[in-house]
């Protein structure tokens, strides 16, 4: 503890603080990452706007991977446990994280949820973030990989309008590709937009209903 310098009575003085609040989140995220690594759990942060198919992707990943990994899931939502229950039906231990009015998950909420799991019993953790294409970009959770799920029903400009979320994405799934023609959305263009923003992201076209592209997502996530 540094010595605290006290000012004289009534004196006006400056105090240097240099506290970065977003850095504080990063510190907790680093701790989460270290804990997960120590326990041998791979964690994936699944982000994307409302209704793009994040939960459907998780369901498909569970079906494909439950023979290989012991899977747990965190499900972030403002209220309700609807999605958590959908995931739980697949026999996966699920922790619902209700953020109240908060627009994203943060490292501290994930830390609390991690306390509810016996990590020795799992080796893959799927974290579904709150449906939002903006705020989750700013908060690392401590995951190993981050995937953004977008879909053609959001229209052709979704990527260029929300560049921030793609900066930290390892994988981007363009979902509902079966509807591309009806939506008059060019998948190639969406992919080019993502690569323009983040040349290192892997882009996969998916249909989480039929299972198209799921194996490519699994490969891209290194699972």
């Amino acid at each position: 503890m540094k010595e605290v310098v006290k000012a004289a009575e009534g004196e006006i003085y400056d105090l240097e603080l240099s506290v970065d609040l977003l850095r504080e989140n990063e510190k907790i995220a680093e701790k989460n990452r270290a804990l997960l690594k120590e326990k041998g759990v791979k964690a994936i942060d699944i982000m994307g706007s409302i209704g793009t198919g994040k939960t459907s992707l998780i369901e498909k990943l569970i079906i494909e991977l439950k023979g290989k990994y012991r899977i747990a899931a965190f499900k972030g939502d403002l209220t309700t446990t609807i999605d958590a229950e959908i995931i739980e039906k697949h026999g996966v231990q699920t922790v619902a994280i209700n953020t109240g009015k908060e627009c994203h998950l943060d490292a501290n909420l994930v830390k609390k949820a991690l306390n509810q799991l016996d990590l020795d019993n799992f080796d893959l953790l799927l974290i579904e973030n709150v449906g939002n294409l903006i705020c989750p970009a700013e908060f690392s959770l401590g995951s190993e990989k981050r995937i953004v799920v977008i879909s053609v029903t959001e229209g052709p400009y979704m990527v260029v309008k929300h560049p921030f979320i793609f900066f930290n994405a390892d994988v981007v799934a363009i979902n509902k590709v079966d509807l591309a023609q009806a939506m008059e959305v060019d998948i190639g263009k969406l992919e080019a937009d993502v690569k323009r923003i983040n040349p290192q992201a892997t882009v996969v076209a998916t249909n989480c209903r039929s299972g198209k592209g799921i194996q490519s997502v699994i490969a891209a996530l290194g699972l």
Binding site: D14, S18, D20, L21
Partner: peptide, 14 residues
Amino acid sequence: GRECLIKSLKLIGP
């Protein structure tokens, strides 16, 4: 360019 930093404060002493 990503920071949200509380850099410094101006206070009146006790």
